[in-house]
Amino acid sequence: MNGKVIQKQLKSQKYIIKLGFEKPMKNIQSAIQLSNLYFSWGNSANDFNFKLNNFVLPINTSGIILGSSGSGKSTLLGIISGITKPNVGVVKVLGEDLFKMTGSQRDRFRADNIGIIFQQFNLIPYLSTLENVLLPLRLSLKRRISCGSSKEQYIYEAKKLLDALGVSSKKFGNQLASTLSVGQQQRVAAARAFIGSPPLIIADEPTSSLDEISETDFLKQLFKQTSTNKTTLLLVSHNKKIIPKFNKSFEITDIIQSTLSQKT
């Protein structure tokens, strides 16, 4: 290690102290803790709305929520990630009460701590594969620091993740994201969620656009990453076959009472 790198690392250390990331962590038992939620898309009773009494996902576990489409799963994930605000209720993620924060603090919290994988269309089409994976680092100093202290290290980290998830960084790294196949795009999205090791990964039906073989493969690699990074995983799916892979499973209808589930 030359002096420059050491200096840079010292600088990063300073940042850590300045930002208070090393403040003594509370003894967090649960990664996600929701209580007494009420949510409605609109004001009238006919608008989609749901109630949730209690939901807890312990730290370092993998959880799956099962439910059909339209049952409010995506809305629930929006609330957990701090983008959609519930009308009433407490949302605690990694010990922090999300909706006691300002919007800006919430955005930073999400950038620092949560990796999100969508059902499909995860990538910014006009950026390259590598640039897509590197995006979270540009928005979060914490995740940047956990990758290293130089651009080369960030790129090395991104390539390592891409290769580990089965997308050859050599071959596809500089290709536009829009030119990748759906399966590849999901893997790139996973790499992007994992970069900088956020403690929580949320995935919204990440395999629904994949065939069965790809799905198995994708999940295998997903779990490999969660175990190496000691990440909490919350996945939403309608595929009951994959339940055994998870530590905990929930039925959406058990968690929330939505207008839709009441009707059906």
Binding site: R110, I116, I124, P125, L139
Partner: peptide, 14 residues
């Protein structure tokens, strides 16, 4: 809109 949702999910502010 998709692109905006992605950016928001990554922690981009409105």
């Amino acid at each position: 809109r998709r692109e905006m949702a992605i950016l928001r999910s990554l922690g981009a502010k409105p």
